[in-house]
């Protein structure tokens, strides 16, 4: 699971049968099944290929992310779902060997175009990571960092409001209101992850990307985060990568199934889970491989 975050290409290797190259397998998967496009998309991915050095990790993906909706991306390890997610706010820029072709639009503007500043993009498209990663600073400072960075507050009272509101929206305010000066790292794992969500919300992003946000958490903390994702849907477009099919079924409205870097099937979550059209999707969700 951890490997996937670094270089998925490694995992692809292991799954490749000897007689076929990845390219041949991907070609044999055929076109994406289901409707990749929605009306009025917030973000729109068209024909995106991603390479790590010479190895191709994602093959011609088309996918829309809609407002007020949670889209979950599922698939076996190394299928490129985290890679695609990290393309959506250009976090892949930090990996020197990573190359992205194709087009990703946010509100109709290409995020990989020369005019787009990755710093501004990341303020608009926030991200929550697999492992809770609060800064080793106070809870208050953790949340206040983003707004302060972007100058979103006019004065101290403003900042206090933003911090309290963000913590409230992330459903953690009642638990930490008396110890905002404690270190963010002193919280439990689930609380840390909600703190990270509060930190992301504080920048008032338009899209929130979540990369397996519950994989390091226990079931109770997971339930709280899932509840929170459902509430956040009212205000944000959310894309979530998950390894838990139950979680995908619980929180998302649309689901995209990836295999070996190819988007195999996408559609309403209900349809995908009750009536998958592609053979691989069916095999995966019935637990026959993955």
């Amino acid at each position: 699971m951890n490997k996937e975050n670094t270089i998925p290409a490694l995992d692809i290797d292991q799954q490749t049968p000897n007689e076929q190259t990845i390219e041949e397998i991907v070609a044999s998967l055929g076109d994406t099944v289901g409707e990749a496009r929605v009306e009025n998309p917030k973000m729109s991915v068209s024909g995106v290929d991603v390479f790590y050095a010479e190895k191709q990790a994602i093959f011609g993906v088309d996918l829309d992310i809609a407002n007020n909706e949670v889209i979950s991306m599922i698939g076996p390890s190394g299928c490129g779902k985290s890679t695609l997610l990290r393309c959506l706010n250009r976090m892949n820029d930090t990996i020197p060997i990573c190359r992205v072709t194709g087009e990703i639009m946010l509100d109709g503007e290409g995020i990989y175009s020369k005019d787009t500043d990755p710093v501004l993009l990341r303020a608009r498209v926030g991200m929550v990571f697999q492992k809770p990663n609060p800064f080793p600073k106070s809870i208050y400072e953790n949340v206040a960092y983003g707004p302060r960075l972007h100058g979103l507050n006019r004065n101290k009272a403003d900042l206090d409001d933003i911090v309290v509101n963000s913590l409230r929206k992330a459903g953690i305010y009642d638990e930490v209101k008396n110890r905002l000066d404690d270190a963010g790292t002193s919280l439990s794992g689930g609380q840390q992850q909600r703190l990270c969500i509060a930190r992301t919300i504080a920048c008032s992003p338009e899209v929130i990307l979540m990369d397996e946000p519950c994989s390091a958490l226990d079931p109770i903390a997971t339930a709280k985060i899932e509840e929170l994702i459902d509430e956040l849907r009212e205000n944000y477009a959310i894309a979530i990568v998950t390894h838990s099919m139950q979680q995908a079924a619980r929180v998302s409205q649309r689901t995209a199934y990836f295999h070996l870097g190819k988007l195999v099937e996408v559609g309403d979550t209900d349809t995908i889970f009750t009536n998958p059209k592609h053979e691989l999707t069916e095999k995966y969700i019935t637990g026959r491989f993955g």
């Binding site: 976090m91 990341r122 983003g146 990270c196």
Partner: peptide, 23 residues
């Protein structure tokens, strides 16, 4: 310094210089 700290700050929209000097 764990890369997760850099990711967190970058993800919030800090520039690379800010990531270095703030965190």
């Amino acid at each position: 310094v764990p890369p997760s700290i850099r990711d967190a700050a970058l993800g919030l929209g800090a520039s690379r210089l800010q990531v270095v000097f703030h965190h």
